[in-house]
Every structure is written in structure tokens, then in C-alpha cells.
Design a protein around this nucleic acid. Sequence first.
DNA 1: TTTAAACTATGATATTAGTCATGTTTTTCA
DNA 2: TGAAAAACATGACTAATATCATAGTTTAAA
Lengths: 229, 229
Amino acid sequence: MTRGMSSCEQCIARQLNSMNTLTKDELKQVSACKITRSYKKGDIIFNENEMLNGVYCVREGICKLTKMSENGKDQTIKLLGEGELIGQRSIISEERTNLSAIALNDVKVCFVPKEQILSNIKSNQEFSFKVLQSLAQDLREAEDDLINMAQKTVRQRLAEALIYVSKSFGVNEDGYLSVNLSREEYASIVGTATESAIRILSQFKKEGLISTQGKTIKIENLNDLGRVE
Amino acid sequence: MTRGMSSCEQCIARQLNSMNTLTKDELKQVSACKITRSYKKGDIIFNENEMLNGVYCVREGICKLTKMSENGKDQTIKLLGEGELIGQRSIISEERTNLSAIALNDVKVCFVPKEQILSNIKSNQEFSFKVLQSLAQDLREAEDDLINMAQKTVRQRLAEALIYVSKSFGVNEDGYLSVNLSREEYASIVGTATESAIRILSQFKKEGLISTQGKTIKIENLNDLGRVE
DNA sequence: TTTAAACTATGATATTAGTCATGTTTTTCA
DNA sequence: TGAAAAACATGACTAATATCATAGTTTAAA
């Protein structure tokens, strides 16, 4: 480790969108507990209905939050990249998780024990307010997603999912999305059948909106993709 | 006003699910600003994309939070009854509202200025944590709603909407739901066409799950209604 | 109390998306 | 590197829901 901030500190600080929220002493404490865990593609970080004893901060890789429904399909709620926190809602509510967290590729997280986070929330007003703001932001996003789910077609939602992945996780040097999700995973984000996702991606290809190479996808026309009907 | 707690205090206290969160002095301050506003059925409390300068606490009546989508339909996100807060998310994020709040019947709210709420959040750790917990709860509900929207049929969602209204706002002496929503309003909660909502309610009636008298609805078989496929 | 407006009801038809079946391509790993 | 597994692709059919049309009922207000 280099001097200055540890990765844990960076995670927390970045997530909360402020480098000056915790005092130096508090940061030192957070960095003191640098328990790092590694997961491979497909590994479960935690399952639905578990009690967590801390929050996870993604240092490397991408995770998804999903929930299995009665009919056996699972719904992806959110993708999380570097610097994002997982599990804070459950810790704050003191409830079991309602989602599972799964690694989408090789993932490293740092684990911050519950007591640590809660004590910072309770003793540091500014930090606490940042957490409040980040929950408020998540809530707004969830409400927007709900409206999209209710009112847009599968085609529109899939187009938006591609744009979301592109904006959140970027593209590589050839312009292909740097996160490779299977058609099944796209279907889970959009809330549709895998075959429907495949079919619509084929349409997008025919219409010149995207191109593919195996499972990797490249957005060819972002503007039109954002306007599909 | 009688001595003891004012209505505003009661609103805040009830919402935050704790009578001991604010100190007596803080409660006195909150109660000092008892600006009460009245709205009639259909009145707009605030619109989408407004800057709020405070939060509203419902003292009487029911409100809905809705968002108009591009195709002209509006989606109801949540119904709010007595004791519930409106606008806290926008105040915390310091953003414009993304939903409008509309009175579903005659409504009285008390208005708590932004500075008041924010100063309590910033100076009272326990109060702040309660707000945090209530946002975490809202977030969980929004995630659950998203999954329902994605994975359940219109029929199932409508059944759940009826149960939700019944549990949240109760029934009158004859067993009829005490909140009277039009079929159009149910459609807006469920995210479907008004005709579909009407058709499904007719089916429920034929199946003996509910009965109706004009627009008022009575749940006849709560168990089976909760299990429709 | 009557009359318009709003709401509820239902049939016919169109559209969207899901399911099942089958074949092809890509990826993985022994 | 070659076979098996996983993922992708597409056709045919079905089910769910939306849309359009029309008519009956209830509500509210003059």
C-alpha cells in the first residue's frame, strides 16, 4: 500500500462523493479494517434474506443486485462498479437483505464492519448527511425505474439498458461495451424473456443501432438508440 | 390548539416512528411554524420539477405521488395518509421534485420549512438517523414495487393494490374501502389501461373476491385475492 | 329533479411479449 | 484441439394486454 488514502478510504470517500466528510482519524479507523475479499464471476457475495454484518465497497469489477421471484425468474435491480457501496440499506434498516449481490466478473471488495459504519454515521454529522443524500438519490432512481418498467416497451427498456451500461462502465478502445453481459443478463435487467432480449438485439443490429461480435456489443448510433419506439 | 403536542409535532413524530427523537426545545420550534394548508380533491400540492422550500406532513386526507410519462399516462408511485411526509427526498437531495403530489380527497397538511427540517437533521443525530431509516424503508419498498411491476401480471398487481389500499387506509363500518379511488386511479397505480383495470375488477366480482357498489369496493375474500394468478 | 359530464362496462380487434421447439454459433476446458 | 456446454438465433404459436368503439350507470351540479 502506498501512503495517503487506502483503497477502503477511497471507496467510502468516492461513494459519498466528498473527500472531506470523515476526519483524518475516522478515515484512519476505516482504513484499519481493510478486509479485502475476492470473488470470481458468478460468485455470490450475499444472498437474499441474510443478516449482513457490514457493508461492501467494490474496489474492482462489477456486481449485480438481483431478486429471485416466485416464478423462478430473477430481476436485476442495479449494477455496481468501482467505488460503490453494497448493503448499506440493510445495515441502516437493521433488516435482512432483500436482494442478493453477485459478481459479474472477477471482483474485489473491501468489507467495512457494521459497527464501523454505524459509528461514523452516528458521530459524524456531515458523513451521515452524505449517506442520507446517497440514499435519496437511490430512491429517486428506483422510482424512475419503476415508471419505465410500467410505461415503456421492452424494446425501449432494452435500448436504455444498453445506454446505461455504456455510460456507467464505458467502452474499450474499439468502442465495444467494456462490460460483457449475456443476453440472459440483459433480459433480467429489462424484465423480459431471454428470447425476447435476443430478438430485439437482432432487430437493433438490422437497424444499424448496434453491432455485435459474439456476445460483445457496440453501440453504433447512440442518438437513435435513445429514441427507439 | 390544546396543550401538549401540536399536530405538526405529531406528524413529524409519528412519521419518524419515535416520540423521543427531537428534544422538547426542537419540538417547540417545529410546532412554532404551524403553517397549515388545505386542498380539495384533485388539487395539486406541488408539481414535477419544482423546487420545494419545505416538506409537507399530511394531517388529514390522502394524497398521491404521480409522474406523467411521455405518452401522456401518469403513473402513481405511492399513496400517503395521515402522518406521512411529502417532499423530504427533494429537500435532502437539494433537487427539483420528480413527482407531483395531488390530493385524492380533502386534505390538510402542515408545512415545515426547509431550514427547520435541515437544521434538525444536522443538529440532532438521532432524528437524522430516523430520517435515514425512513428513506431506507422507502427504498426497499420502491425496489419491491419494481420487481412486482416487472414480474407480476396486471391481475396480480391489481389484487395487491386493493389489499394495499385496504391495509393502509382501512374500511368503513360496512366493510367497504374507506378510500374511494376511481378505476382510472387504480389503473395508474397498477400501470395498466383503465379498461383493463375495469375488466379485471369485473372478473374479481364474478369470482366473488370483491363486491362493488358504484365505485366503492369491498374485499370479500382477502385470502384468495392475495393468491390470484 | 333533470341533464350533462364523468365514470363504468363490455365486445371486437390489434399489438406486444411469452413460450416452446429446434438449430447454429461461440466458448470453455479436459 | 476437439467435444461438450453454454449462449445465441429464429420460427411458430399462444397468452396477455392495449386500443377502439359503443353503450349503460352513476354522480354532481344547475
